[in-house]
């Protein structure tokens, strides 16, 4: 495992911890899109179907369990926790799941490396992960008041994707036959979705003002 991949995973882990910290200690999920969190839970559930059949490493297994467990518990907190759920911006978080899920499923059925159940599910999870942040970005734009933790959460998620691209470039040059078009293109699309957010994030950081996305 190279340094970019490891840093990417750690950034991903940090983003989840920031979100759990906000939910668990502040007992608030204000500004967090439940739609995005549910999509991530679906992403991990469909991608990690190999969890009990193919062993890669202890690290790999542990991280998969962490991402599965954290994504489902975040969804549980926002939907059912008696205090946390009161802070959910339900009226603002109106993105429809099936606008993203159905096209991703169709695309995975059409474009995949192998037409098997697991392979199609794995491809579906890649396509869905690429666009799963959209409800969150829409919510950020609607929320005039983005708190620090929410801003950091989205920033860390974007940083994780950017580091994965560096990881792929590194692997391409260091490993023989390392070519994965589906992973790369969906990963690139995913990272590009953060471009606008990154721009305003760095602007607010540079000028030392509160993060706010233009309508």
């Amino acid at each position: 495992m190279n340094i970019f991949r490891f840093a990417g995973d750690m950034t991903h882990l940090a983003s989840v911890l920031v979100l759990l910290l906000k939910i668990h200690t502040i007992k608030s999920c204000a500004g967090i899109s439940l739609k995005t969190q549910e999509l991530y839970a679906l992403v991990f559930a469909t991608r990690y179907l190999d969890l009990f059949t193919d062993y890669i490493s202890l690290y790999n297994t542990l991280m998969k369990l962490i991402f599965l467990g954290s994504s489902f518990s975040i969804v549980w907190y926002i939907r059912y926790h008696k205090i946390v759920r009161r802070s959910y911006d339900k009226d603002q978080d109106t993105f429809r799941h099936y606008f993203l899920v159905l096209p991703c499923l169709l695309l995975a059925l059409l474009i995949n490396e192998k037409f098997t159940f697991r392979e199609v599910m794995w491809t579906f999870s890649l396509y869905l992960e690429a666009v799963a942040i959209l409800p969150q970005l829409v919510l950020l734009q609607r929320t005039r008041n983005i708190d620090n933790l929410t801003g950091q959460y989205v920033f860390l998620l974007g940083a994780y994707r950017a580091l994965y691209i560096l990881n792929w470039i590194y692997r391409y040059f260091t490993e023989p036959h390392y070519v994965h078009w589906i992973t790369w293109i969906s990963g690139l699309v995913q990272t590009l979705l953060y471009a606008d957010f990154f721009y305003y994030y760095f602007q607010s950081w540079k000028n030392n003002v509160k993060l706010e996305l233009p309508a």
Partner: peptide, 10 residues
Amino acid sequence: SQDTLAKDEL
């Protein structure tokens, strides 16, 4: 195989 190379990522 090539399959496992991609799937060692999270």
